[in-house]
Structures are given as structure tokens and as C-alpha cells.
Simulated scan of single mutants.
Amino acid sequence: MATPDFIRELRVTAGRQLLFLPGVSAVVLDDEDRVLLARRADTGGWSIIGGIAEPGEQPAATAVREVYEETAVRCVPERVILVQGMEPVEYPNGDRCQFMDIAFRCRAVGGEAQVNDDESLEVGWFERDALPPLEEFALMRIKQAAGDGPAWFEHPAPPAA
């Protein structure tokens, strides 16, 4: 994921300290219920599409923007499927971030899937029973997108009496 300008500006004064950031991911489905995936340039692995919300940007708009920027596919968000705080991550340059991910199920409405920026090596549509190797992050969201149940979130322990 390319580092947005606003984070580069924050890093000038914040240094390498932990930043809590709004992340958005999208499980994009086509009319055949195939899943849109991208093979990431940074890891070489396949994943769903995602990115960081810009200041003032609504999460659903982030999903639409990221999908188009990375794959040239136009989509519309259908529903929130998951909200999850992620574990902190440290990048090779020493920057530390922790993301709060809001995941959407989206429907493709136009465009042709193709590499549309420098964040992906390949993009493509995959049948759910023929997915390439994926991390649990993507698998959990694809599974959650399959149903019409409520959004997944980790249930907190009840407050102490």
C-alpha cells in the first residue's frame, strides 16, 4: 500500500511512533459472484483490495476509490461486513501503524480488471472454490461477504460490576 501524503506529513513530526489509522478493505464480487483479488507488489501475495482513508473521506468512498485505483473496476458498496482492530505492524523502515479495518462487500458495476497502479502485480476474478493462497485477513472477509448476516466484530467482555 502506497503511503498517503498526509501520513508522510505526520511522520515529519511523529517520527516512527505508532499511528492509529483508518483502514478500509473491499470484497468485490461480479455478476457471477467471483471475487476480485490483486497480487500485491510489496509482498507478492494475493489479497482483497484495501487502503487507508484520506482525511474527511467516508469509509465507503475509500473502498470505491481504492478498488478503482488498484484494479480499474468500478464498484458500489452493498454493506459493511466486518469491523476489526488489527495488531500493530512495523514496516522495514521502522514506521509503526495499527489499523482499524472496516470491510465492505461491494458489487462490480463497470470497468475491466487490470493492474491500474504500482501497488499490484496482477489482478483477476476468482471463483470462491478456486482462490489462490490467501492470508486469514482476506479469507475471513471473503467468508463474511458470502452471507447476509450482521457485520462481524469482536464482542467485548461485559464491564465489571
Rank of each mutant, 00 (worst) to 15 (best):
T13E: 15
P158L: 10
E154I: 10
R105Q: 06
P92G: 10
R8V: 06
A38W: 07
R8K: 12
V12E: 15
G149S: 07
Y91V: 07
V109S: 04
D33V: 06
L21P: 00
P133A: 08
Q98L: 11
D95Q: 14
G50I: 08
E87Y: 08
E122V: 09
A160N: 07
I7L: 15
E135H: 14
A38T: 06
L131D: 06
F6Y: 15
Q114I: 05
Q17R: 15
E54H: 09
F99C: 02
R107W: 01
E119Y: 01
P156Y: 14
D117R: 09
G110A: 01
I142V: 12
R105F: 08
E119D: 11
V80S: 06
A53R: 06
Y68I: 01
F99V: 01
F153I: 07
V64I: 14
V115T: 01
D101A: 06
A160V: 08
A138V: 01
L134F: 04
G50T: 01
V89I: 12
V123Y: 02
I7W: 05
N93L: 06
L29Q: 10
R39E: 10
A157Y: 13
G110H: 02
A14R: 13
I49G: 04
G56F: 07
A160W: 10
E54N: 09
V12W: 15
T62K: 11
D42S: 11
P158F: 08
R8Q: 10
L36T: 09
V80C: 11
L134Y: 04
A26L: 04
L139P: 00
E9F: 15
A130G: 00
A60R: 14
G56L: 07
G111K: 10
W152R: 05
A103H: 01
G94W: 07
A145F: 09
G85L: 13
E69D: 08
Q17W: 04
A151K: 08
Q144Y: 15
D118S: 14
P159I: 10
P150L: 14
R34G: 02
V89L: 12
F137P: 00
L29E: 11
L10V: 00
D5Y: 15
P22K: 08
F20V: 11
L18Y: 02
A14T: 11
T13I: 14
G51Q: 02
G149P: 04
F6D: 03
A63M: 03
K143Y: 14
A160E: 12
F20K: 10
L10G: 01
V35G: 12
F99P: 01
P158V: 05
D148Y: 12
I142T: 04
D118H: 11
G51R: 02
D31Q: 12
